[in-house]
């Protein structure tokens, strides 16, 4: 896997114009709408994503994972506001410079207020990280006008 053209050749598009400043610092991220439903997300590990051991920093993997499961939660909630309640992350294997880390997150359960989103993150065929997350839906109350 080398360079952006190889990623685009897999059917991915660059996610542009994220309203989150932090994602401009650590990105770019990619997305691909799947014919069977759902969306896959990806990022390629670069040198600036690494730790002192020369592999992807756990914080970088979790930051990407947070973005991915948030996208799934947004979609499940019709684009309305949500906040993260919890992220349970297991690190199974390292990701190295040049690896394309991919995930197709899934909605496990949805109640009136809570979304359960899971994701398995792969580098090639290997699962490197799993996430179980909880999200809270936020209803924007209309502002009350005092008479």
């Amino acid at each position: 896997m080398t360079g952006q053209n190889a990623i685009l050749a897999l059917g991915y598009q660059v996610i542009t114009g994220s309203p989150d400043p932090f994602e401009h610092i650590i990105g770019p991220f990619y997305e691909r709408r799947e014919s069977g439903g759902g969306v896959s997300y990806a990022f390629q590990v670069r040198q600036e994503h690494t730790n002192m051991a020369g592999i992807a920093h756990g914080g970088m993997l979790m930051s990407f994972a947070d973005m991915v499961v948030a996208q799934a939660a947004f979609a499940a909630n019709g684009g309305d506001h949500i906040v993260t309640l919890s992220m349970n992350v297991s690190f199974l294997a390292p990701a190295r410079i040049g690896d394309l880390v991919e995930c197709r997150p899934g909605l496990i359960r949805q109640t009136a207020e809570i979304l359960f989103i899971d994701g398995d993150f792969r580098a090639g065929e290997e699962v490197i990280l799993t996430v179980k997350s909880l999200w809270k839906t936020i209803r924007m109350r209309p502002k009350t006008v005092k008479n």
Binding site: P21, F22, H24, I26, H57, G59, M62, S63, A70
Partner: peptide, 19 residues
């Protein structure tokens, strides 16, 4: 640069700090 659209610290950044 650490913020999200809601002008709060991005969740990913909080996870990175914790790590």
């Amino acid at each position: 640069m650490h913020l999200n659209r809601g002008r709060s610290v991005h969740g990913g950044m909080l996870l990175a700090i914790s790590d």
